[in-house]
Design a protein around this nucleic acid. Structure first.
Lengths: 333, 333
DNA sequence: CTGAAAGCGCTTACAG
DNA sequence: CTGAAAGCGCTTACAG
């Protein structure tokens, strides 16, 4: 009886087959749970060999044959933003539950990096793409045109309607307006990125529309904006456009938590007390706020709950279905 | 002349070979840059076909043949911790620069999840593992025993010496002691996880040793600890063990930024002013501090610089070398 | 119940 | 300079 194992070689189906004195086909079937297609004896012998030799199926071989890698790529604009890392870890857990692995790429909001990763992931033959806060890019356009399975989170597919998980940003902006209004604020400000995405634009629009409905015309809303991709710096720079010396508006919407943090820094530099001098509302609801940003009122977006619907959308696409939009509820308190 | 492409099939080497009327071998060589091994004409014809048909090499086929996937797995305890996400994004960039892809897994500091991911990554035939803040687990012990390429960051390999990237935690603790001492603190406190890792233990030990050398005996150092994995909550719970009503120590080392945030919450609840009532020093130096935690003095660990040495260690291992420890400098201001 | 064979996409001696 | 062939580890009709 041979040792059943080439020295140095990894443990493969062939190793097990030899050890258990059966064909590769038989081992394969048993490994894949088609245990009833073999005699109890054979199955047992194979199981023993697997146990003894510590066999684990090589997914590369499997992937090549089946054309399915069980790998999904997530591209995100900035891992250091808690919004992204929360979505990432939630999605990863949901994928793991269905036996998939997630590869995570940080595009730094750069078109060239987004395309580079898209291409690298394609070369890895991933089975799907998840774009969290995408930007337009030739590579993305191509992926969409090729009808690859792709789900968008936070920001919609910029090229055509399709799978999306997010919140109603207009409503979130409106909720911020309600909150400030109910706290007596009649001349609010709104802080946002000058060259912002649809997301921030909608939040601003929803805010202004609701304020208007409440009797506060757009002319009485101070707009503070600044260019840039990184919201911390955008918030800071935007706040600095408010006249120094003059009092700030009594209430303010910052379109993201990070923007609010940036504004806070500026407020500190100007010796303003938050929230006494200016009530700041933002949208995101990062977990960290309750620990170190108690001065911030942040509308909670359930990013942790994005994972499941994202994966469900992916499955819908894989099954040939037509994915739609999943709009999750935010909460104000 | 045929169309050169099976309908529905993906573009493979064979597609290109047929289109350019050469053998698969030839296309393969050209794709891999062995362009001098073909005539200029042939090379040109192949290049054209590749261009026209949009061919991209399938890494799965390549991986199966070569036994190299160009994928590396990173396992991290908690993606939501900025420390981890910073290391992750830095490492990913460094890997990308050498043509590798990184898969990121969040173990939530759980032994079972760590092992599950280790196994999944092995099945994906990754070429190496990077463990950021590992914990002991049977699967990890096995990986180490099998001598798989593995690099540890922050926490050392618990099973034997080897590749490691981190800082000198004893010295960092000592630096914190110096800082508090130089600010007049003679009866400090130290806050840490009760069942902490070697990292936090060393920081505490370094702190106490230096304090002792400065003439502050261990008996005059208040120890506040609490169990748990999540430092925010650990810090909060530990701070609550300090007697309410009584004044806090004038200075305090929190072994991580997150611990400090937890302590801060408790301080707020007790109407203490930070840093006026208690000067808090921590170790990590997260970027966010300057924005929303100006009250915190944090010793900076250059997590962003971990990426390169981590990748270099991996390369050393791949090349059969003996990796050592890379100890990076922290900075106090 | 079981096995031989083809083939997924690629690389790599080897032969010409 | 170029191609035929073997083989990486797996799955899957197909035949017995």
């Amino acid at each position: 009886m041979k040792t059943g194992r080439k020295s140095g070689g990894a443990v493969s189906l062939a190793t097990i087959a030899e050890a258990a004195n059966v064909s590769i086909s038989t081992v394969s079937r048993i490994v894949n749970g088609q245990t009833h297609r073999a005699s109890a004896q054979t199955a047992e012998r194979v199981r023993q060999a697997i146990e003894e030799l510590g066999y684990q199926p090589n997914q590369i071989g499997r992937a090549l044959k089946q054309g399915k890698t069980r790998v999904v790529a997530m591209l995100t604009a900035n891992l250091n933003n808690p919004v992204m890392s929360t979505i990432a870890s939630a999605t990863e857990a949901a994928l793991r539950d269905i036996g998939y692995v997630m590869t995570l790429c940080d595009t730094h909001d750069r078109e060239d990096l987004q395309d580079e990763y898209l291409q690298a992931m394609r070369a890895q033959a991933v089975q799907g793409y998840i774009l969290v806060t995408n930007i337009r890019s030739p590579g993305l356009a191509e992926i969409v045109a090729r009808k690859e399975p792709v789900v968008f989170a936070c920001r919609r597919n910029p090229y055509k309607p399709g799978a999306f998980v997010g919140i109603d940003n207009l409503q979130a902006g409106a909720a911020a307006a309600d909150y400030l209004w109910s706290h007596g604020c009649r001349e609010p400000a709104v802080v946002f990125p000058a060259n912002g995405s649809a997301v921030t634009e909608e939040r601003v629009a929803g805010f202004c529309a609701r304020m208007s409905a409440l009797g506060v015309p757009a002319s009485r809303i101070t707009k503070a904006a600044a260019p840039g991709n990184f919201h911390l710096e955008v918030g800071y720079a935007a706040a600095r456009t408010l006249p120094d010396g003059a009092p700030w508006p009594k209430g303010m919407l910052c379109v993201s938590d990070q923007i609010a943090y940036g504004v806070y820094r500026c407020a500190r530099e100007r010796n303003l007390r938050i929230p006494e001098d200016c009530l700041i509302v933002s949208i995101d609801g990062s977990e960290l706020n309750s620990w170190i940003a108690p001065w911030l009122k942040s509308i909670q977006v359930p990013y942790r709950d994005f994972g499941l619907p994202i994966v469900e959308q992916l499955q819908t696409i894989w099954n040939g279905g037509e994915p739609g939009e999943v709009i999750l509820p935010f909460s104000v308190d």
